[in-house]
Each structure stands twice: as C-alpha cells, then as structure tokens.
Design a protein around this nucleic acid. Structure first.
Lengths: 204, 204
DNA sequence: TCAAAAATCTACACCACGTCGAGTTTTATC
DNA sequence: GATAAAACTCGACGTGGTGTAGATTTTTGA
C-alpha cells in the first residue's frame, strides 16, 4: 500500500490527517498495552491523540476499525520481514533462521499480534488478516517439510496438515511466552524448533 | 461442587432458584452459539430464561460472571471425564485413547471451550479455569512422554517443555477444527496424534 | 485571495449495564 | 396452618460509552 504514492511533485504530500491517523494508531497501541482492548475507550484514544471523540470518528468509523487498522499496519510489517525467510537450502538452517526471525517478530510486535489473535473471532476483518498471515507461514513450513523429505499431499500425516498443526503450536506457544520475559520466549522457541526438527525427520 | 448436598432429608432439596440458575446457563450457552459473546445482551439471557434483567442480577453479578459459571460447569465435566485418561502402560495406546477422548470432548463442548479460550484474557477467572485445565493436560502429556523415554527435566528439549508445546498445538488445532465438520476434527486429531507420537520417539 | 475540501468541535440520542428499594412468593418453624 | 425469615422478582433509575448530526474552523490548491 505505501507503494502507490503518486509523487505529486517531489516533497512528501503529507496531509495533516496522515499524521493524526498515525498518532491515533500509536495511541491505540499504547493504550492497548496499558488497559487492554475493552477497558480502552474511544475517548481515551482521542484524548491520547490530542483530538476529541468527534474528530476521531472522522478518521475511523468505530473502535474495532481503529484496532483493525493497527493490526493491518503491523501485519504488513510482518509480511515485509518474512518475505525472504526459509529460503535456505538446508532444512535445518531454514528452520533455525525461521525461528530466530519469529522470536524477533514476537519481541517487537507481540502485543499487537496477541490482540489480533484475541479479536479474530469478534472482528471478522482482523480474523481474515490473521488467517492470511497464518496461511503464509503454513505455506513456508510446508515447503521446508517437503524439502526435508516429508511426503506432500492432503492426508493428515503429510506435509500441509503437519505444517498447519506446527504453525498453531508456534502461534499459541509464542502467544503465551511473549507475555513473559524475552528469556522465556527464547526457551519456548527452542522447544518449538526441536519439535519442528523431529517432525521433519531431522532427528539429531 | 455438586458433591456437597447436605442431603437435607431424602428428596432432592431442589430450590426453585437452582432450576432458574440452570436455565440461565443453558440459555447463555444457546445464545453464545447464536450471536456470540458481545452481541449477546444480559436482557437476552434473562428473556430466554423467562425472567427479567433485574431478576437475573439476583443470581449473577454481571454478564462475565454468567459466562464464567457456564465455563466452570463445562470444565468440571472435562475434569470428570479426563480423570482416568492416559493411564495405559503402552504409550502408543495411551496417546491413541487420549486423542480419542479429546475428539469427543471438543465435539460435545467445543463451543464453550472456544469461548473460554477467547475470554481467557479479558475475564481473569475464566483464564485461571482454563489454565488449570491446560496444566492437567500438560501433566498427562508429560507423563506419557517420559514413559516413552523422553528425558525429564526443565530444559526446552525435555519432557515438560515439549508437553506444553504439544498441548498448545492440540488446543489451537482443535479450536480451529471444531468450527468445521466432525470430519475435519478427526483429521486434525490424526495429525496431532502423529506429531505427538514422533515427538515421543515412537516413530512408526 | 478565495472557494472547496479536510479537519475539528459540541451537542444529542441511544443502548446496555448494573443498582436500588419495594414488592411477592417460597420455605421453615412453632 | 399461622407467621416470620429467606428466597426470589420486578420496574425504575443513574451512569458511561457509543455513534451521529450540523455548525464551524483550518488547510489546501489554484
């Protein structure tokens, strides 16, 4: 999306509203970590962004829409960073770097990712966003598994189904671990990596 | 909890309110499946149970409390059924029966379990209930892993940590699969069982 | 400079929540 | 089977958050 700046002239054509919009999203993220989703009121967000409630409704139609935009922003960042992941030839190496990348992502964006997961059911748009993201990861895991010799195919014991289960394992494990210290997160990552390796038939 | 009936005389000392309370919980469960948690209003529940909002607040202090009670009721049922699980000597057999049991549980109580998971963050009481349940399963998985030869100990590649990751994998996989057909659920179960077996070193 | 578009504000109506106090029914006791 | 206590029910109220409407000010671009 940030690719279609028509480059009006040179000079960033930065509308005033663009700045506000970013401020709203930033405030939303901050409040999300302080009070959580439902304790956080639209008035809080507006106040934090330096405007009134009324003004906020000029930018977003509702509270969930604000959060959806925040999730979209974050998820886009995820896609950027994960584009070239897991392309190493050696499956072991691919798995190792994928997990390292994952730890980084959860360290940076854990909060938003957790709220995305939490709201996936109640806010359909967020659900789609997150499912799409998951599908990308599942595809990547599938590729690694197949390169490691796991049979392709739709049966429950073949690569895609296993990749799906592994993806959910990683999601949920990091969801919990990212609420603790970075230490905890790294250990959780080790465990996931270990199970992934074994599942790929790369038993040490 | 249903164990401490003082057995006033013989004859069930069934207070009128007990019936109402059950009606409220049943209505809550029904509405939960129809409209979801936040669409469902306290007035709806009361109406469904044949009383007014005011009367409902005699039984429960708030909407989340109603749902918490519903989760508690269901979770208690889970504990009942899972008490004697995974006690078979042969790990393979233990894993197989555990997964079969899990499929049954999610088929029967999938809805409530999903909402319990969804509300774990926002309603602390539900979070505790669910975490406790998860801990039981993790302990059971740990036992099986160790009986299968996986090293005990707190390191990320030893039994308890692996059991935790496997538990989250199963939780999340069933969470998603239980929204689809029983067919889907059984396939998901197969995949989980397969990964669990491999992780236990019982590669077919 | 000036008109259109963008941004902001205040005020309002709405809905759901949870509380209160006053009533009615059920239960236990003599 | 009368009666006091408890269990239960109701309608009305206050509160707080949501989203909308219309008037008003600021920014933009020609």
């Amino acid at each position: 999306m940030p690719a279609d700046r028509p480059a009006r002239s040179r000079r960033g054509t930065e509308r005033k509203g663009d700045v506000r919009e970013r401020a709203i999203l930033d405030t939303c993220e901050a409040l999300l970590s302080q009070k959580g989703y439902d304790a956080m009121t639209v008035g809080d967000i507006a106040q934090g962004a330096g405007i009134t409630r009324g003004a906020l409704y000029f930018y977003f139609g509702s509270k969930p829409e604000v959060v959806t935009a925040l999730v979209a922003r974050t998820v886009e960042h995820l896609w950027e960073r994960s584009r070239a992941t897991a392309e190493a030839d050696d499956p072991r190496r691919a798995i190792a770097t994928a997990m390292r990348r994952t730890v980084e992502l959860w360290n940076e964006h854990g909060l938003v990712m957790r709220t995305a997961i939490d709201l996936s059911l109640t806010v359909p748009e967020i659900g789609e966003l997150w499912n799409h993201t998951a599908d990308l990861f599942i595809a990547a895991i599938t590729a690694v598994l197949e390169r490691a010799g796991v049979r392709a195919g739709a049966e429950p014991e073949q690569a895609p189904a296993m990749a799906r289960a592994l993806c959910w394992m990683i999601e949920r494990t990091f969801y919990h671990a990212s609420q603790g210290s970075p230490e905890v997160l790294r250990e959780a990552s080790s465990t996931c990596e270990h199970i992934w390796l074994i599942s790929a038939g790369l038993t040490a």
